[in-house]
Design a binder for these strands. Structure first.
Lengths: 115, 115
DNA sequence: CTGAAGCGCAACGGCATGGTTGCACGATGT
DNA sequence: ACATCGTGCAACCATGCCGTTGCGCTTCAG
């Protein structure tokens, strides 16, 4: 069962993942581990400021958090929100399977020859 | 391995799921099966036009498609995009596990007494 | 035929987002 | 001491999103 509270919690995570640049940052943090802003800026086609904004949005969605080493800000992934988002998708698709099964139970007796 | 093309494809799906109203519509279509716009409007706190726009955005992300019965537009869920989004999240978290394992391999030899 | 239900199209306002530029500040290396 | 690197903050612009209202069209019911 999906409770409404879970949806309200999952929506911001999906929104944070719903930008191509941000999804690239997430993937990169995932593959390469914790990185500084300058390093994250190097690969993508956007400014350092844009990367900074995206990182803050990821932090607001509990998808990343930062630490400081000297003058560098090191950002790393926070996988819990990612896992809960995956959980949400799994629940939705599970409910869809359920609904499909119910639909079959409802439809098939009406057309027993079409099988 | 996550290829960049997959990310570019998954981002719009996440963006479509990244709104609370839309996520509610998706859940509702999932639980109750195909519904008309008027029926979808009844439950939520928004106008019929808002629901219509959201449905079109879901369609653009390949998350829903519509059919027509008389004067009613019946919308139903298209689970393939949902599954591919879930797949994307799974790949990301799998890569995160990998990275964590590499990090452990790198860190643990330096502090063998801290177990 | 007439009324009502269901829906689409278009326009509008408010607000958030994605991106840029410019400037200032602490940390680092020589 | 000085240049440089890495960031933060603030302002700015363009665009898109979210939701509304108003109007008109088709379809169904009496």
């Amino acid at each position: 069962m999906v409770r409404p509270g879970e949806l309200a919690a999952a929506a911001p995570v999906f929104a944070a993942l719903g930008d191509e640049t941000r999804l690239g940052i997430v993937t990169r943090l995932c593959v390469a581990g914790p990185l500084s802003i300058a390093w994250l800026t190097a690969g993508g086609g956007v400014t350092r400021q844009a990367v900074t904004k995206h990182l803050h949005m990821l932090a607001q969605a509990s998808l990343a958090n930062r630490s400081q080493i000297g003058r560098e800000r090191i950002w790393e992934l926070e996988p819990r929100a990612l896992l809960s988002a995956r959980e949400c998708l799994s629940q939705i698709s599970a409910q869809w399977d359920e609904a499909l099964a119910r639909l079959r139970l409802f439809v098939e007796p009406l057309r027993p020859q079409d099988g």
